[in-house]
Nucleic acid binder design. Structure first.
Lengths: 212, 212
DNA sequence: AAATTTCTGTCAATTTGATAACAAGTGAAT
DNA sequence: ATTCACTTGTTATCAAATTGACAGAAATTT
């Protein structure tokens, strides 16, 4: 395994899909799979799958294929599923609450330990047993509890200031739902969920349906 | 403008970002912009921006650049913002409710006219003035009201059956929040929001921070 | 145990996407 | 009016990503 060569983002973005299908296969009790079968499932070509996986090591065996359990575990490790991270959600609007209730976060190894909002009506409430705290306490809380990740679900205008505060308080990563590009030091990881862009893509293709 | 050549998905996925920055520029009252300035904003190279835009027509002028209002309007048209579509949300859990309250949907020209759920406790309730109906009524409602888009926010297991029913009822597009790959006829547009994959990417990079 | 099939890892070829370069317009300054 | 700086559209070049091909190893069949 060559730890020096940078693996392209294009490859990395395919990994979760491999992992998802391997979870399904595992649940079905299937113990081995070939790149061709994975191709049928995922839609990627068999060649591409073999190349992708080989970026991280030779997990397969000639004449046999890949062992589902092993590959699932290895991909899990690559994706950091063997790690546990703490997170806070900033913004307890509809989206913030939905994310607080979203099980996928736990499955990915993240534990949401506090929510923050500036609305006095929200402060003190509990969402799924997680307390909502005053946004003024954000920096202290993040610092004192060594929080790894901030999840930003505030409106666009508030997102950058919140990001700045999280960064100052020592956050390692941000899961950003606000429709803007956050400016952070390059040591801080930002992963964006672009609902606005996603729905525009849908709109684009719907419109193009009509042109045919 | 060459309507025959297929424009690559890579290009299309960049359009919403252009549009977003043009909205901001317009709001600031800025009337002209060069590809270089757009590059500074978006992070794409000026060359790439000019190439992207030229897929759809020559919107710029040598020595001047692009007129913000014009380009904004043209990109809006390309993205289908001049069209109005009706939508229903299937699944009124936390995510479904958050989406029902999400303003970006309207901004993209979509109008959510009904929600559907199988939970009797939800049926008859109103979320943001939109009624929640029994899932059994889904097909009839979609057919009778000529619904364009179905938004799927049900758990993974229920997503494909719902997609099948929507397709049968004549839906044109699906905005899918369930973590699975829907199988639909190729005439039906599917745009996925992959929260599970997004957070795994964050996890990947967080883990890789440590390895350095 | 030999022959055949299967399937990976890897390298080469091809395709796609991004960047660079530049001729030709345009507007502003003098 | 002329010059100069600017900026697009477009072509040429370069880089990245995908696909194809195949040797060699393992598993399976005969």
């Amino acid at each position: 395994m060559d730890r020096d060569t940078q693996i392209s983002l294009t490859v990395i973005r395919r990994l979760p899909k491999y992992h998802r299908y391997l979870t399904e296969l595992k649940d079905k009790g299937i113990s081995r799979i070939s790149s061709q079968e994975l191709s049928n499932l995922t839609g990627f070509t068999a060649s591409q799958i073999r190349q992708d996986l080989n970026n991280f090591g030779g997990f397969g065996q000639q004449g046999y294929g890949y062992n589902v359990d092993d590959l699932h575990r290895e991909l899990g490790k690559i994706l950091g599923l063997d790690k546990r991270y703490t997170a806070v959600i900033v913004g307890t609007g509809n989206l913030g609450q939905a994310i607080a209730n979203y099980k996928g976060i736990e499955e990915a190894g993240f534990k949401v330990v506090s929510l923050f909002d500036r609305n006095p009506k929200m402060i003190g409430l509990k969402i799924r047993d997680i307390e909502v705290r005053d946004i003024d306490l954000l920096e202290d809380y993040v610092r004192e509890n060594n929080i790894d990740v901030g999840i930003i679900t505030v409106p666009k205008e508030g997102a950058q200031p919140i990001a700045d505060r999280l960064v100052k308080a020592g956050i390692k990563g941000i899961w950003n739902f606000a429709p803007c590009d956050l400016i952070v030091p390059e040591t801080v990881i930002v992963e964006n969920v672009r609902l606005n862009e996603s729905i525009l893509i849908l709109s684009y293709f719907l419109k193009n349906l009509e042109n045919k």
